[in-house]
């Protein structure tokens, strides 16, 4: 199996019997099984294969390409620090640091838009539908955790 960009910007996958011109990686359960169960999908949206442990099953070069593609396809921010989570007039105004840098956003009706995926894992969806993930609230610094606790 070979994975490469050709032409530039388009991921191509060649298996023993055929070649797929436009391949997209898609996480099957990105929140429950982060880093596992990666599906490779062809241009028509049909699954080509499912990789249970993509990082182990692919070579280092292949994984580098696939994970590059993933960073460009999954634009969710992983929250690493919360500067502010201020509730005012029914909306919550956030100012956070993420793995993609600083971001400010606003959420409404947090009962629906802050989803606990596990006891320590939280998904926050802002008014535009952008997703922000807190993978483990215990990994946040105490000040951030306090702000989060007060907000949700």
């Amino acid at each position: 199996m070979e994975i490469f960009y050709m032409p530039e910007g388009r991921l191509r996958l060649t298996t023993d019997d055929r070649s797929y011109l436009s391949v997209k990686p898609a996480w099957a359960a990105p929140l429950t099984y982060p880093g596992r169960y990666l599906s490779l999908v062809d241009g028509k949206g049909k699954q080509i294969m499912m990789l249970t442990e993509p990082q182990k099953e692919l070579t280092a070069e292949q994984w580098a390409l696939v994970s590059n593609e993933l960073t460009h396809r999954y634009l969710n921010g992983k929250v690493t620090k919360i500067h502010e989570a201020k509730e005012e007039f029914g909306a919550t105004y956030w100012s956070v640091e993420t793995d993609r840098g600083h971001k400010e956003f606003v959420t409404q009706s947090l009962q629906e838009n802050a989803q606990w995926l596990g006891p320590r894992q939280l998904l926050i969806i802002d008014v535009d539908g952008n997703r922000f993930e807190v993978p483990d609230i215990d990994l946040l610094d105490p000040a951030s955790r306090k702000l989060l606790d007060r907000a949700v």
Binding site: P7, G9, R10, H72, L75, D126, D128, N130
Partner: peptide, 11 residues
């Protein structure tokens, strides 16, 4: 050739 020119959030 497919050129991804610019990326943006849902906003």
């Amino acid at each position: 050739e497919e050129i991804p020119l610019v990326t943006y959030s849902m906003t």
